[in-house]
Design a binder for these strands. Structure first.
Length: 532
RNA sequence: GCCCGGCUAGCUCAAUUUGGCAGAGCGGCGGAUUCUUAAUCCGUAGGUUAUAGGUUCGAUUCCUAUGCCGGGUACCA
């Protein structure tokens, strides 16, 4: 909500600019330097008295009567402007008639026959049109400038008495009028709700927020490079699917009008990527959004970014190595160091330089409950849950109880980085049976600070076994289980031994930006609509 | 979904404990100021205290409900 007077003031100024023939929203401004490059080359630019042209948003102002200072920000940084009001000229955006401005402000029409090239983009008024000793043009214009406006300036660089690198502005161009006040200049925007709802303001005033999303971009670019360099093919599989699968989650439903058929937003890319392995690609990966119709918390958002990678002829041990290598690369590249330094996340340090700890699911859980969980009846398991304070109902299925027990008794306390490995078969319908124990599967989940970062298998490629696993699930009336005949048919065509890996990109960004909530790393996180 | 907490000017925060005219800084508006950088100085405007009810002589303050945000919990291969 705007203060009415603030917005009305600015609209009044906007109209006044137009009345004076100054276009508040011109089309372009040719910069010679980004702020950071002007600062970086400062000494040389001063020495050569180079005319620099810089553009950005005015953020603070210090007015001294005959002179004025502004801080001008662009994406790369901020620089101070110094303007002598009686010397600086107003540069006119292209497409406006300099004649009109000259008449309005100076009382003298522009010289007839001024060559058109002097009227175009860099058309400062010729010096000779400004009466000696009197330069009302910029001063009048200045009162129509607000903090938050975009402007372009031209001038030479110098250092003020206090040593601050500064542009001595000779020409000033209005580039875009802002109609809304900026948040408080010192404290910025603090309110969490506003920061998420008005992310543009958060980015505008909070440097740390901008940094998070730069890191996110670099993390994704590095991840792509990592898989590309290893010969993986990046692919895009459907988000809109007639069936969903590859995870146990409630999907978002939609309807395709032309086909008059219900569709689902994907909950995982797994089943399509495996079809591509069947099709003969030996290494594929996809980075994209998955959608799950479930709750929000500090590590869950209904739409989130997932990486899935599949490689033929390897098992889950290879996927562990791949995971370790990827995190090692990210840890060294994203900490700005050439060596792997510990990554700090939520007050703890994580070392990605070596092999990860391995926590075997069943033995680790057995240690906590004093007995082999796989030897227990469903009733006994339920009793143990209750004894350990793990909330279950009489309807909670066996696999679910195992998973909850493990999560609360073991996983939550893992510092990591660790691989939780070799899960019970019953909770892992897409993973291959463990080569040494038919009750287990070859599976691991990367866990850091108790948080799951992904999921990986030696992929189940026996089509008849896969059908039985799906049938088992359906028989247990597990929620959201689907028999994907089309997928099983693809498997029947033959899929080589394959290792698969899924990683939650958002959680990885949380780790490498030391963010406590997934909302901090998703640029427009899910929020309810504001009530009326 | 459930439990708890928060919501005061455009922004950052006071006042609520114990009910008694809702204040300040930034930003705005007007003025002064030729080296400031959270500029300074003088003056000034800006509020249905999230929304709707209730208690009370009187409610930002106490009670109820609703909305949104947050924390927890539930759901979550």
């Amino acid at each position: 909500m705007h203060s009415v007077s603030e917005r009305e003031n600015r609209i009044r100024k906007l109209n006044e600019l137009r009345e004076k023939g100054i276009e508040p929203y011109p089309y372009q401004f040719e910069r010679t330097h980004a702020v950071s490059s002007a600062l970086k080359n400062f000494e040389k630019l001063v020495e050569t008295e180079t005319q620099v042209k810089i553009a950005g948003r005015l953020r603070t102002r210090r007015d001294f009567g005959k002179t004025i200072f502004f801080d001008l920000h662009d994406e790369s940084g901020k620089i101070q402007l110094y303007i002598r009001k009686d010397e600086a000229l107003l540069a006119l955006p292209a497409l406006l008639s300099p004649q009109k401005v000259a008449t309005d402000f100076l009382g003298t029409p522009a010289l007839p026959g001024t060559p058109p090239d002097q009227l175009s983009s860099n058309n400062a008024l010729p010096e000779r049109n400004v009466p000696p000793g009197k330069h009302p043009l910029f001063s009048d214009f200045l009162s129509l400038v607000d903090l938050g406006d975009f402007v372009g300036v031209s001038g030479v660089l110098f250092r003020t008495k206090t040593g601050e690198p500064t542009v001595n502005v000779k020409e000033f161009t209005m580039l875009s009028k802002s109609l809304a006040a900026l948040p408080e200049k010192y404290h910025g925007l603090q309110d969490t709700e506003q920061r998420l709802r008005k992310r543009h303001l958060d980015l505008l005033v909070n440097q740390e927020t901008r940094e998070v999303f730069r890191t996110r971009s670099r993390l994704i670019a590095l991840t792509r490079r990592f898989f590309d360099e290893r010969g993986f093919l990046e692919v895009e599989t459907p988000m809109l699917q007639p069936l969903y699968g590859g995870a146990a989650a409630e999907p978002f439903r939609t309807h395709y009008r032309v086909l008059d058929r219900d569709y689902f937003l994907r909950i995982a890319t797994e089943l399509y990527l495996k079809r591509l392995i069947v099709g003969g690609f030996e290494k594929v990966y996809e980075i994209g959004k998955d959608f799950r119709n479930e709750g929000l918390d500090r590590v869950h958002n209904p739409e989130f970014t997932m990486l899935e990678a599949y490689q033929a002829y390897v098992d889950y041990f290879q996927m562990m190595k791949l995971t370790e290598e990827l995190f090692r690369l990210l840890a060294s590249e994203l900490t700005g160091s050439t060596t792997v330094t510990p990554v700090t996340w939520m007050g703890a340090e994580f070392d990605f330089s070596g092999e990860w700890e391995k926590v075997e699911f069943v033995p680790a859980l057995a240690e906590k409950i004093g007995t082999d969980p796989l030897q227990l009846s469903e009733d006994d398991l339920r009793k143990i849950c209750k004894a350990k304070g793990v909330e279950v109902t009489d309807q909670t299925p066996y696999g679910k109880m195992l998973d909850k027990l493990f999560t609360e008794l073991v996983q939550d306390h893992i510092h990591g980085p660790a691989f939780v490995a070799d899960h019970p078969r019953i909770i892992s319908p897409l993973a291959k049976v463990h080569r040494n124990n038919p009750q287990l599967v070859e599976r691991f989940e990367p866990v850091i600070a108790g948080v799951e970062f992904g999921n990986a298998f030696s992929e189940l490629n026996d089509p008849l076994e896969q059908r039985r696993r799906f049938e088992e699930q359906t028989a247990r009336h597990e929620e959201f289980s689907v028999m994907d005949e089309d997928f099983i048919q693809a498997l029947e065509q033959g899929m080589p031994p394959t290792g698969g890996l899924g990683l939650g990109i958002d959680r990885m960004v949380m780790l490498f930006t030391d963010s406590a909530s997934i909302r901090d790393v998703i640029i427009f996180p899910q929020l309810k609509e504001e009530g009326k």
